[in-house]
Nucleic acid binder design. Sequence first.
RNA 1: GCCCCCGUAGCUCAGCGGAUAGAGCACCGGCCUCCGGAGCCGGGUGCGCAGGUUCGAGUCCUGCCGGGGGCACCA
Length: 570
Amino acid sequence: MTSTYDELLSRLRVGFDAVAPGADPVLRPSEHADYQANGVMAVAKALGRPPREVAAEVVAHLEIADLADVEVAGPGFLNLRLSADYLSRRLLALLEDPMLGIERAREPRRVVIDYSAPNVAKEMHVGHLRSTVIGDALVRLHRLVGHTVIARNHVGDWGTPFGMLIEHLLDLGEDRAIAELSIGDLNAFYQGARASFDASEEFRERSRSRVVMLQRGDAETRRLWRILVDQSVAYFSEVYAKLDVLLSADDVWGESAYNDYLEGVVADLDALGLLVESDGARCVFPEGFTGRDGEPQPLIVQKNDGGFGYAATDLAAVRDRVFGLGADEMLYVVGTPQAQHFAMVFAAAREAGWLPDRVHCEHVAFGHVLGPDRKMFKTRSGETVKLVALVDEAVERAEAGLVERGADLTPDERRELAGQIARAAIKYADLSTERQRDYVFDLDRMLAFEGDTGPYLQYAHARLRSILRRAGDAAVPARLALAEPAERDLALGLLALPEAVASALEGSAPHRLCTHLFDFAQRLTAFYEACPVLSAEGEVRDERLALCRLAARTLALGLGALGIDAPERM
RNA sequence: GCCCCCGUAGCUCAGCGGAUAGAGCACCGGCCUCCGGAGCCGGGUGCGCAGGUUCGAGUCCUGCCGGGGGCACCA
């Protein structure tokens, strides 16, 4: 179904084209009307004519009466007010549309989304939260509109630390090591390895030679490495389940997956004449990057010890995703400190011809999670905060809140609901701020049932479901009159969902959908206030129930696209 | 030294070059025997500073100030 916005836009284009072919109508939501078109002033300026005269001419060429009334306002704005007839038709169509008016992509793309990326044998911590949650929302949003998404969890499963980790595994004994890892005590394991490494020259020596054996593909060493990876991935999967994130073990495509291609990357860069040896390292110097002393900035693909830098892995991954997976689009959901690295990798890949212009490639960068002191979020003792601990605490507080409110639930139901509320709180707080910004992690605020929070939106949905349950079956009205302003405002909110989804996708910006859903929930409270539903009669009751059904589905679908559950009751 | 991100109300944050810059929280005052009060209404001259571009700038450009981050072999 074509969205209201697109419908209006294409009608407006006809009028603008008649006066200034190709001009952008600049269609926006409006406080002064339902929508406004701001393009007239620019056109008038270009033509050297009075704006209001141009506006009148544009309006004269419009065929839009079945959709909206148009009125010239101020210096030359076109104010559009959707007709009652159109609104009614549109809402009736939405009742039949499982997508609620959201357009499926005309040309579905293959989108590779790289996110989460924890490290093997290391705890998942608050630093992985944003990548995981934002990545998950982007996966869901792309799938919603019909793109094919390939999730890639670029797990850190390779590199020098594995010598130390494998030796520690041997020192502990396999059974005990597995026991430790399987209960998710990854930090203890890692710190144990670290302690031995720091304490013993003999251990360090073993670790170094173990790395060499690992890189050479020694079978026994690989088997031990595999244990570390498998145990860790199993643990990550538990964390993803706790967060209700779509990632599974099948999406794990760690750094090691590209090992076999690294030499080829270097050889091919060399053959292309892009490789420069500098201080013993083999580097690409992509155009336009300078370092500390104004010198060209290297992207190190092979270190002076012969090992491959992570740039080599990332370049191999780009090649694999473009030519192996046939990606049309690639999103890297990685923190903002990596901005320069990715800019250089993408630039180098483009220079090498591995990243064609047709492939949209974007570093979806995000800011830090801050503690109450506005510094990097740490525990009181200064340690990084485990992701599981974070979620568990949120669940406990949500459950305590349910107990306090005297929710009529069995303990199992209460636990389940507390989990849904806790995840909503954490995810929504993360998703609802513009991603490049840092945000302050404040559980009390994000768990609140009032204000711009996940639980508030869940509540708005549960309240609608409650009304609909009590209403029983209702006839679908033949027409929705929208006699009350609050009904009309709610209807406009329903119609704006496709724009919000499109906007979130366009900017890889889930917060735009969050903003819309919150705005929509506020329209709902105004609607409740002005328009009793169950006590209304006849067609008015049917109409309001239809609006409630659409509203409930809008919230459920919108929250779902963000990875947030919409429970029936709260 | 160079580069990137951020700076909007007391606090947390929206704001796609358009009209009088908004919301939530907190605070104050009102309302409601009403489908879930987890509510509703009212109360506010705040876009870091200075230039510039533009018919129009919180939004774009330049410089500065403040915060965070990056700049050669960790990933």
